[in-house]
Simulated scan of single mutants.
Amino acid sequence: MLKDNHGRTINYLRLAVTDRCNLRCFYCMPEQGNNWLARTELLSWEEMLRLCRLTIGMGVNKIRITGGEPFVRKGIMPFLSELSQIKGLDNLTITTNGVVTAPLVPELKQMGIRSVNLSLDTLDRDRFLAITHRDEFDKVIETMHALISHRIEVKINAVVMDGKNTQDIPALVALTKELPVSVRFIEEMPFNGGGQHYQTLLWDHMQILQTIKNSHPKIAKIPDPQYSTSYNYKIPGHKGDVGIIAAYTRSFCGTCNRIRLTPQGVLKTCLYDNGGTNLKDILRSGANDEAVSSAIVAALATKAIDGHEAERTTYADGAHQSMAMIGG
């Protein structure tokens, strides 16, 4: 099993397959957009499969596919099909914005995809347009219902942003009454798409929870699964449940079991770390599997204890990459 320098087992890989996206959410991308990576700068599908096989052989049994938006990259479905068949991979999940996903749901189900995270910050069409700068609300809702109808677990990720969508909290919670979905409210990251750093956060975990309690005073804490990044709650009589992810306060870091691989092949041991090990360069240098595996082990030997330490030691100038470049 992979272990970091703090004795934590690492069994979860978040793989960003592209930096590109068909939405332009302000908290994820700079207003002017990213300088998109050239195709040659991206890991090829073959390189990704090699790295996945290696990490699975080292103890990783869960892989989440992220982006950017994964389904905008040509060739994603054959890649997912091949990845899903690797022995030792117990859990293959996807995070998507849902814009082009609905027609692909039957094939995802056939591959064995059991869970999908759907990014949806509002149930109001006008606010959706204001946040994403694209009029694609109906397609996202279509994807949600397609996933539910195919009995794929749906986790709705909503970033809570002061002055943008806090009025949507009750409506999103209401989804859990009749639908078997988990709605997870995410504290806004300590930086936005343009790299600006926030010194304070108005809508933290406790503020979000209190807002839900105002309408649902009987909401109750339920056990959190091992390695969960969310604090989970249940409202009596609701089919679904609610989670709150403390992305700003980072109170979940102590049990971190994950590593990240960016579209350009940089292995990041923490979301808040500005550094990383360039596995793409190692692969393309002709290194054998043993050398690549050694590089992964070496990277984990310097993993920060939590996001605060990682940010403090690598972002001295306060600047951050956009989330689309990091991998969600």
Rank of each mutant, 00 (worst) to 15 (best):
K3M: 05
A301P: 00
G328M: 07
L23W: 01
S228G: 10
Q321Y: 04
Y233N: 10
R39D: 12
R64A: 08
T200P: 05
L104F: 09
V181C: 03
S149G: 05
D4H: 04
L271W: 11
A102F: 14
F128Y: 15
I156Q: 01
N97L: 06
D204T: 02
L92Y: 04
N35S: 12
D306K: 08
Q207S: 11
S215R: 05
E136L: 12
G307E: 06
S251M: 14
G195V: 00
C256P: 08
G327Y: 09
G254L: 05
L147W: 00
R50K: 14
P106F: 00
S230K: 00
Y231Q: 15
D19Q: 07
V297G: 03
P180C: 12
D273S: 13
T101E: 03
K213P: 06
I222C: 10
L201R: 05
H145M: 15
E187F: 00
D124S: 09
E311A: 15
L89R: 11
H320G: 05
M48R: 14
S230N: 10
L13Y: 02
F185K: 01
D241R: 06
I169S: 00
I186K: 03
Q210I: 02
N91T: 06
A298C: 11
P225K: 04
E187M: 02
C52Q: 06
I305G: 07
L42F: 15
I63Q: 05
A171P: 00
K234A: 14
G59M: 09
C270G: 13
D317V: 09
T132Q: 14
R14K: 12
A158S: 13
D162S: 10
A130E: 10
I152R: 01
P78L: 14
D317K: 15
G163E: 14
S44P: 04
C21D: 01
G88F: 09
F185Y: 13
N117I: 01
D273H: 13
D317L: 04
N61S: 11
D135C: 09
R114H: 08
V99K: 09
Y315W: 14
A287H: 06
G318V: 13
G33W: 07
F71E: 02
H197K: 12
D4M: 02
I326K: 09
E290W: 02
M144I: 06
L80D: 05
A287K: 04
S285D: 10
G276S: 13
T229F: 10
L120I: 00
P236F: 06
G318C: 07
I76E: 01
I235Q: 09
L300H: 04
D90F: 05
T313A: 10
G57S: 08
V266I: 15
V292K: 15
L179I: 02
T101W: 03
H308P: 00
T313I: 12
G33L: 14
P70L: 07
G88H: 12
I296P: 09
D126Y: 07
G75M: 11
A310Y: 14
G240C: 08
G254M: 11
I212W: 10
R114M: 12
C52N: 09
K239S: 05
T255G: 02
L271R: 13
L23R: 10
N5D: 04
K177Y: 00
G7N: 06
L49G: 05
